[in-house]
Design a protein around this nucleic acid. Structure first.
Lengths: 171, 171
DNA sequence: GCAACTTAATTAAGTTACTGATACAGTTTG
DNA sequence: CAAACTGTATCAGTAACTTAATTAAGTTGC
């Protein structure tokens, strides 16, 4: 156990909760459900996945994933391909249109955070920059502890339900 | 526009997205919906609110709030009281049982983050601690920009949908 | 001080995203 | 190759939403 640190976990928790709320409130153009956006994000970040894998990572039933993927396929956001290594399985791929949605939402978040960062002092920005590696490592420690595959940093991963409950509300 | 900063907003965005996902995946004992937990959190943090206020802050319709509050009242988690200053309005108060749920969930988050922080180096913890005021100020800048009332730091506020889609999934 | 408008909450009916329980095809195992 | 297992799909039911309409209380203008 490490020596006493000045870091207030309670305060960190509050701040992260607040950012979560900010992300969730981000309005959306397109009317996609919470879990749907999470699936697109997972696929865009981690590449093609089986339905069962998605069910596990999104914490909904496999049945729900089947239904959602069917809907997303109709909308042209994902595609089903057979898994060459297992005749029972299906690999869900995100399409360019699906990836564009994920990218668009991330761009909105970046824009929003940029506005806020611009209003900080340069000392404050430097403090945040200095903390980023440690925060990233906390995330990494979490995913390895949980047994998830380590987060791939090529494209995306990580949105999850970062949206308004139904993303609707503002039609 | 401020001078060039070393802060990578893109990276900050990713890290915050990851924390959001961590929070959302936090399993729950009690089976409460996403929006329900958010309402409890808002009430526990900001005190009694009208139904219309809740509808605005949760981004669902007023009708949905009416139905949810009715259900929460049956379960003893909130109470309806008349608004002395407006005969049309109702003030929704969180009960001790309701507040206990919010506190319990926060405690889980604190515990989880504590574990992770324990595994950082003391230099990393210090870096996070040094960044906390700036991160808190970003949140504050956000809420004032949005026109929300400034976040009250007496009790809570901020959870929002920080939960598994239906919080069920793991019965 | 009352008619016209606005605002707060409720109610009712419909939609959607989920769950749970099967069913079934393909894979592994003895 | 039969038995057991795994991955996906289907179906029926439920819970949380939506929109639209209703009731009641407050506000405004003359």
């Amino acid at each position: 156990m490490p020596e006493i640190s000045e870091l207030s976990i309670a305060r960190l928790t509050r701040v992260l909760e607040d950012f979560t709320r900010m992300h969730i409130r981000l309005p959306a153009e397109r009317r996609l459900s919470f879990t749907t956006l999470s699936v697109l994000h997972t696929l865009a970040g981690g590449g093609p996945k089986r339905l069962t894998e998605l069910a596990g990572s999104e914490q909904v039933t496999q049945s729900a994933i089947t239904q959602m993927v069917t809907k997303l396929e109709r909308e042209g956001l994902v595609e089903r391909h057979p898994d060459p290594s297992d005749g029972r399985a299906v690999l869900v791929h995100v399409t360019a249109a699906g990836a564009a949605i994920v990218d668009g939402r991330r761009a909105e978040r970046v824009a929003r955070l940029s506005e806020l960062a611009d209003r900080l002092t340069s000392a404050e920005r430097a403090a945040v920059a200095a903390a980023l590696p440690a925060l990233a490592r906390m995330v990494e420690l979490h995913s390895t502890a949980i047994g998830d595959p380590p987060i791939e940093r090529g494209a995306g991963e990580s949105d999850s339900g970062t949206d308004t409950p139904r993303d609707s509300a503002r039609r």
